[in-house]
């Protein structure tokens, strides 16, 4: 197990370098530059800028410099946020995105697993149909629609909650963005749980458990949940990684200073160090959460050994 974890952690390094390389290549292929704008820049100034940022050097020198920054974990200064280093931006935005993402996922897990389990246990009942219809709704409504709708209802009509802004992460400010963010995950998890549970409910060993004389509640908690939850565990790795890495739309809708907001701005502005920094961070997050999922598998299912 320990060997497996160490091996997987080591693999993260080349994986991240590959992702970063591809990202760097794509930035270079895209037209435009961080200093190009509406107004044409005089040739002399452009030359100065290119020299200052080393853009006049051969590509392999620039690539090497970028790779060096990634390996050191110091991505340098942002090109569009003056006076801020990429690392500063990462560290200041991460708590916002991570809080949002974690809370949203916990909410999604709690509601999704519960409704999915109930739906499976009462298959083809009105509970089942109602929760699955609700889940379908959750999957179908994009969050850029759901967010404003919630704001309209709870902030601008009922005046219960603030419509936007971070507010130092106060609970009132968090409720609407967390709700908006978790809706689709809630729906996915409910459906995954339902199908996972249904499969286990039909299995031979659950029949054995019933034949023993266990009550339905005991059967579910001791014999069904563990196996039925497996699809949700697989889903959780990438889902958590992306949630924590920031969610562009929700951060935009609620004007939150999260990672996703910066990521979008960085892309529009061709802010190369910032893009590279965020991409490196997200890929590390994905790889680590996938590793956690694999460890989770081994913990849940004794047949899985690494």
């Amino acid at each position: 197990m320990l060997r497996f974890i160490i091996r997987r952690l080591i693999v993260i390094v080349p994986m991240v370098l590959i992702v970063v390389t591809l990202t760097w290549g794509l930035i270079r292929l895209a037209p435009g530059n961080f200093y190009t704008g509406e107004k044409r820049i005089p040739k002399a100034i452009e030359k100065n800028i290119r020299e200052k940022y080393g853009l006049n050097r051969p590509w392999y020198v620039q690539y090497g410099k970028m790779m060096g920054s990634v390996l050191r974990g110091d991505f340098g200064m942002s090109l569009t946020y003056p006076g801020q280093s990429v690392n500063q931006i990462l560290w200041s935005t991460l708590p916002v995105s991570a809080t949002l993402g974690l809370l949203a996922y916990i909410l999604a897990l709690a509601v999704g697993v519960t409704t999915g389990t109930i739906a499976a246990l009462k298959q083809n009942s009105k509970w089942d149909y109602a929760s699955m219809a609700f889940a379908m709704l959750g999957i179908s409504i994009p969050n850029f629609v759901l967010g404003p709708l919630l704001v309209l209802l709870f902030s601008l009509t009922l005046f219960w909650l603030p419509p936007a802004l971070w507010g130092g992460g106060s609970p009132a400010n968090l409720i609407l963005p967390v709700l908006t963010l978790s809706a689709i995950y809630m729906a996915f998890i409910a459906r995954l749980t339902r199908s996972g549970m249904l499969e286990v409910l039909r299995s031979d060993y659950v029949r054995t458990a019933r034949a023993k004389g266990l009550s339905e509640v005991q059967v579910v908690f001791r014999h069904v949940l563990r196996g039925g939850i497996m699809p949700v565990v697989s889903f959780s790795g990438p889902a958590l990684a992306f949630l924590i890495a920031g969610t562009v739309v929700v951060e935009r809708v609620f004007a939150l200073p999260g990672l996703g907001n910066y990521f979008i701005n960085a892309n529009f502005a061709r802010d190369e160090p910032l893009i590279i920094g965020i991409v490196a961070f997200i890929s590390i997050a994905v790889l680590i959460f996938n590793l956690l999922v694999d460890i989770g598998y081994a913990y849940i299912d004794p047949r899985i050994r690494y």
Partner: peptide, 20 residues
């Protein structure tokens, strides 16, 4: 009543809970 009435099944490979 299941205390008094028990059953064993055809396929022992799948009749036991693999997680327990």
């Amino acid at each position: 009543e299941r205390k008094h009435l028990q059953m064993i099944f055809q396929d022992p490979m799948t009749s036991l809970n693999p997680f327990m």
